[in-house]
């Protein structure tokens, strides 16, 4: 995987796509376990055309497990099998 260490500020507002090429939205924030520093969840501002009914939601945002992240490059690619609640 390209770019293993990356600035979190640069991750924010990156486009999030699933592995089928569907646009999920843009990254709003990342949830971490403060004790261990483990990245646990992505908080994504969903694209307007996205059907959010199958996602876990928090306010206007959808939540995805960080485990779903397959690659981070110009966009963030998430595994379509792992992102739905």
């Amino acid at each position: 995987m390209k770019m293993e260490k990356i600035s979190a500020q640069k991750l924010t507002d990156k486009l999030v796509m699933d592995s089928e090429g569907t646009e999920m939205g843009v990254l709003h924030n990342v949830v971490v376990d403060a004790g261990t520093g483990t990245l646990t969840e992505l908080v994504v501002k969903p694209a307007t055309e996205l059907d959010t009914s199958r996602f876990r939601k928090e306010g206007n945002y959808i939540i995805m497990p960080f485990d779903a992240v397959k690659a981070v490059g110009d966009v963030i690619v998430v595994d379509s099998e792992k992102i739905r609640a």
């Binding site: 995987m1 260490k5 979190a8 971490v32 261990t36 485990d67 992240v69």
Partner: peptide
């Protein structure tokens, strides 16, 4: 700084 592969800060 986050490590994407290790999934941690």
């Amino acid at each position: 700084s986050v490590d994407i592969r290790e999934k941690r800060i």
